[in-house]
């Protein structure tokens, strides 16, 4: 793990980890060093951050549309439990 120079694959993996605030200091140093000579990964990194913003939107949308079991489903389940109880 001593080498400072990393491949694009390693760089972008660290970049994804960093999106969750879980990249180590050494990883962040390696990543920023990589950016100094690799513009492609820099573009990737920018888009990866944007992806995180978009994921927050999805998270909000999901929360709004969060469903629970319908009354119909529950009634059916109750019925099934009763039947099974009688059998046991």
């Amino acid at each position: 793990m001593g080498k400072i120079k990393i491949t694009c694959e390693e760089a972008t993996t660290i970049c994804s980890k960093a999106q969750y605030g879980e990249a180590t200091l050494l990883e962040k140093i390696k990543l920023n060093f990589h950016f100094t000579y690799c513009k492609v990964c820099k573009v990737f990194s920018k888009q990866n951050s944007k992806l995180s913003t978009m994921c927050c939107m999805v998270k909000k949308q999901r929360e709004l549309s969060k469903c629970c079991l319908s009354e119909k489903d529950k009634a059916k389940l109750k019925q099934q439990i009763k039947e099974l109880e009688n059998k046991l």
Binding site: T12, T13, S16, K17, Q19, Y20, N48, L51
Partner: peptide, 9 residues
């Protein structure tokens, strides 16, 4: 996670 993100990108 990284492969998923790369694919999503």
């Amino acid at each position: 996670i990284h492969r998923a993100r790369t694919q999503l990108r």
